[in-house]
Each structure stands twice: as C-alpha cells, then as structure tokens.
C-alpha cells in the first residue's frame, strides 16, 4: 500500500467480512482498515523488516516472504480477495504472480501506476522518461521494474483468460471511468479466474 493509492477507494472494492491476502502489504494500514471497518480478516505478505514490525505492532498478521519466490505457501482459493496494491510494478515475475493471485484468491484486486497517464505521455513526447509525483524515480534508479499501462494490463488479463469484473482509473483519490488509460495515474482491476 502506498500513499498514492487512496485507501478507501480500494477498501470499498473488498466485500464485508472477506478473508483477505494483501501481497506487498507495507505497514499493514489497508489490512488494519479492512479489519476495523469492514470486518475482514487475513494476512499481509511483506519482505521488508521494518514493515513486518509495523504490521506486528498494529496486530495485523504478516508473513515475511519474497514474492518473487511465489505463493506456494498458500492453498488454492483459500482467500476471498487477494490484493496487489502498488506491488505488481516491483515484481520480476509479474505474470506468474497474476496467475498466483487468482489461484489463491477467488477475486484479485490490483492497482499499479498507469504509464499511459497523459503527463507521462507528454514527457515521453519530449524525449524523456517521466518523473512525477506518481512515478518519482529516475529511470536509472527506480524500484518500478515493470512499467505498463491500463490498456497493457487489460491485454495481459485477457491473455491469461481472466475475467475483468471491474476496472477503472484512480486520480487524486477519485475514480476515473472515462478514458482511464489517458486520465488516471493509477490503474485498478478486479479480476476472477
């Protein structure tokens, strides 16, 4: 979970009482919110020691695991919802993890920076990689190793025979349902197998 993605905007996609697995859960803020306000339960997965501590301290279950090693610890369809919020862009095996997400969860919810957002396009037109609030890193020093667009992801989901239950853009915490590939800094997808 990052400060770029509005917590409530994601939380309202998660049905009340869901069993949730949050891949790349950060400090556990989203799971904490879901537990307190939407009667959810579940676990976060994190690699960073400080985030593990933060989750444990706030009483959010967290499993320390490198997502690039896969989700073999989790059984098929063992969660109602699997979240990948601002996680996909950091994964070496993004496609494998997409399949794993819908193997482990009945529903997958993914959010990631949309590279086709118009300010990024503008930057590319001037010949330079974008450096924005949403993509704040220089091209040579960025943890975002997978840059894709809203439209690219749609393609990837279809290629993997996934059903897109809902999809929209998020911009300044607001849903952008009109031309999301152009108008939104964040792409959000709700998927099923």
């Amino acid at each position: 979970m990052s400060e770029h993605v509005n917590l409530q905007a994601i939380a309202r996609l998660v049905p009340e009482g869901s069993r949730v697995l949050d891949l790349g859960c950060g400090d556990g803020a989203l799971l904490d919110y879901l537990q307190k306000h939407r009667a959810c339960s579940g676990y976060g997965v994190e690699i960073d020691d400080r985030n593990i501590q933060a989750c444990v301290k706030r009483g959010v279950n967290v499993i320390q695991l490198n997502l690039d090693e896969g989700l073999s610890m989790f059984a098929d369809q063992s969660f109602d919802v699997v979240l990948q919020i601002d996680t996909l862009q950091h994964l070496r095996n993004a496609e494998v993890m997409l399949r794993e997400t819908v193997r482990v969860g009945r529903t997958g919810i993914l959010a990631f920076p949309n590279f086709a957002h118009w300010p990024n396009r503008l930057s590319i037109l001037t010949g330079r990689m974008p450096v924005t609030k949403r993509l704040p890193f220089q091209w040579y020093d960025t943890p975002n190793i997978r840059v894709g667009t809203f439209a690219d992801f749609e393609q990837l989901a279809l290629q993997n025979q996934l059903k897109i239950i809902d999809s929209f853009g998020l911009q300044e915490g607001q849903e952008a349902r009109f031309w999301p590939n152009l108008m939104a800094g964040t792409a959000v997808f709700k998927l099923q197998r």
Partner: peptide
C-alpha cells in the same frame, strides 16, 4: 518454520512470521 506457518494458514489461524536475514 514455513511448514508450521503453512499448517497454521491452512487452519485459518492468526499467525505472523518473520524470517530474519
């Protein structure tokens, strides 16, 4: 330890797991 975590997950128990490098 992961085997134990997995078994607890299968039983839907509350568990946190830290793997210290």
């Amino acid at each position: 330890s992961r085997e134990m975590v997995r078994a607890l997950l299968d039983n839907k128990r509350d568990v946190s797991y830290a793997e210290i490098d």
